[in-house]
Simulated scan of single mutants.
Amino acid sequence: MRRSKYSGFGAVLVSATAVAATLIPGSPAGAANADSTSVKVTCSANYVCGWAGTYFNGLGNSTHPPDATQCKRMPIGYLSVINQAFVTVRLWTGANCTGTSIPVGPGESKTDLGQPRRWMGSL
């Protein structure tokens, strides 16, 4: 069996909640993955899943989106993300949801956020 460049991913880092993101080497590329590699990435319903690398590579984290009035600090800076929650989230570059942000709508994914985004707020 050939080792994929994604084989070191292992498990997804999670908070006290259940595992919500899965990386399956060798699977056909999923709709959320615009990369041409043969990797399928999934994220469970009502979670936002992010990775420290582009194209869903590297350490991962899954979390429920924050309430509309909250700003949530992620344990890793996201460079790629899948939003399976039912609300749009904004991912911010600066502490306490400051700096520049990128909105990620329900069911949407981003393979390269340009720079790490460690703060999340809901719209």
Results as ranks from 00 to 15, higher is better:
residue 1 M to V: 13
residue 2 R to P: 15
residue 2 R to M: 07
residue 3 R to V: 12
residue 4 S to R: 01
residue 4 S to M: 03
residue 6 Y to R: 14
residue 6 Y to E: 10
residue 6 Y to T: 06
residue 6 Y to S: 09
residue 7 S to F: 07
residue 12 V to G: 04
residue 13 L to Q: 14
residue 15 S to N: 15
residue 15 S to H: 09
residue 15 S to F: 09
residue 16 A to C: 10
residue 16 A to H: 11
residue 18 A to D: 14
residue 19 V to Y: 02
residue 22 T to E: 13
residue 26 G to N: 11
residue 26 G to D: 07
residue 26 G to P: 08
residue 27 S to F: 09
residue 29 A to T: 15
residue 30 G to Y: 02
residue 31 A to S: 13
residue 31 A to M: 05
residue 34 A to M: 03
residue 34 A to P: 03
residue 38 S to D: 11
residue 39 V to T: 07
residue 39 V to C: 00
residue 39 V to P: 00
residue 40 K to T: 11
residue 40 K to I: 03
residue 40 K to D: 12
residue 42 T to K: 03
residue 43 C to T: 01
residue 44 S to E: 14
residue 46 N to D: 15
residue 47 Y to D: 11
residue 47 Y to L: 05
residue 47 Y to A: 13
residue 48 V to K: 01
residue 48 V to L: 13
residue 49 C to S: 08
residue 51 W to R: 06
residue 51 W to P: 00
residue 51 W to Y: 13
residue 51 W to A: 05
residue 52 A to R: 13
residue 53 G to C: 08
residue 57 N to V: 03
residue 57 N to F: 14
residue 57 N to W: 13
residue 58 G to E: 05
residue 58 G to P: 03
residue 60 G to R: 12
residue 61 N to S: 09
residue 61 N to E: 14
residue 64 H to T: 14
residue 65 P to N: 13
residue 66 P to G: 04
residue 66 P to M: 09
residue 68 A to L: 11
residue 68 A to N: 10
residue 70 Q to I: 02
residue 72 K to F: 14
residue 72 K to V: 07
residue 74 M to P: 00
residue 74 M to G: 01
residue 75 P to D: 08
residue 75 P to L: 06
residue 75 P to Y: 08
residue 76 I to H: 04
residue 77 G to T: 06
residue 78 Y to F: 15
residue 78 Y to L: 15
residue 79 L to E: 12
residue 82 I to R: 11
residue 83 N to F: 02
residue 84 Q to G: 05
residue 84 Q to Y: 01
residue 85 A to T: 11
residue 85 A to H: 10
residue 89 V to F: 01
residue 91 L to G: 06
residue 91 L to P: 03
residue 92 W to S: 08
residue 92 W to Q: 05
residue 93 T to K: 04
residue 96 N to G: 06
residue 99 G to K: 05
residue 99 G to R: 07
residue 100 T to Q: 14
residue 100 T to C: 01
residue 100 T to A: 13
residue 104 V to P: 04
residue 105 G to W: 07
residue 105 G to D: 09
residue 106 P to E: 07
residue 107 G to F: 08
residue 107 G to C: 04
residue 108 E to Y: 08
residue 109 S to F: 02
residue 110 K to D: 14
residue 112 D to E: 02
residue 112 D to C: 02
residue 116 P to M: 05
residue 116 P to W: 08
residue 117 R to V: 03
residue 117 R to M: 14
residue 119 W to Q: 04
residue 121 G to H: 01
residue 121 G to P: 00
residue 122 S to A: 15
residue 122 S to Y: 02
